[in-house]
Amino acid sequence: MSFSLKRINAIFQKDLKDLSKNMYIGSIIVLPILMAFLYSIGDGETPILLHYLVINLALSSVTAFIQCAVIAEEKEKNTLRGLMLSPASLTEILTGKSLVSLILTVVTIALCMVITGYEPTNLPLVILAIFVASLFFLALGTLLGLLTRSIIEASVVILPFIFLFGFGSMAKPFIEEITWLKFMEYLPNSQLEEIAYGVEVGAGFSDILENLAIILVWVLVGVILTIFVYKKRELD
């Protein structure tokens, strides 16, 4: 499988320029930043749960939504087929197309952390966990983008996922009472929160391995499904 940085950069540059002219998709980054402002109002320390409501919303709305919308638009406008018929490989196309969403995610989350005043005890570990989680959200966005036919359809299809992964933590108090909600503990957003809580009480890399492994399983499932659907989409 070929891996050309030039091709990846070409797709990235194109997406960056294209997205800078797309107000509909670009404006979504306002959502988590606005939420961060709301949570930062008032005295006292912001609890971890609220920091991660903002971070998970950034991951599901910025990472997953933007990725989903740009892929769906490529399908809607018949431009994805042009990329597929070019010498660019699946890895080059998907990497190139993920970079813009990833960079916007980094900028949004960094801004949100500054606004809410989130200063984790072990920043590198938190960054690692957020990065691994963002890979899952990229895969989710790509998958849903490939499964839908237009930006409008993609915007609707991704909504339940934004609620589940962005606001899922709000359902945590009910998990004890409603058994079937227990699966939510294994979602990447919940694992991210667990890592954050652990880090604050001095957990090291080995202590969060299990949580990271669970997120990695989600990444793996997301990537496999994405590759499968992409391969199917190469054919009419």
């Binding site: 091709r7 540059q13 320029k17 406008k77 431009t79 087929r81 042009g82 018929l85 010498p87």
Partner: peptide
């Protein structure tokens, strides 16, 4: 191989030059 079919598309927000620039880089 070069292909032009009824399902070929272009990036509408970009200029003609930018569209071609992308494919210059993809085809090296």
């Amino acid at each position: 191989v070069g292909v032009l079919t009824d399902n070929s598309g272009l990036y509408e927000r970009l200029s003609i030059h930018d569209n071609l620039k992308l494919f210059c880089d993809l085809y090296e």
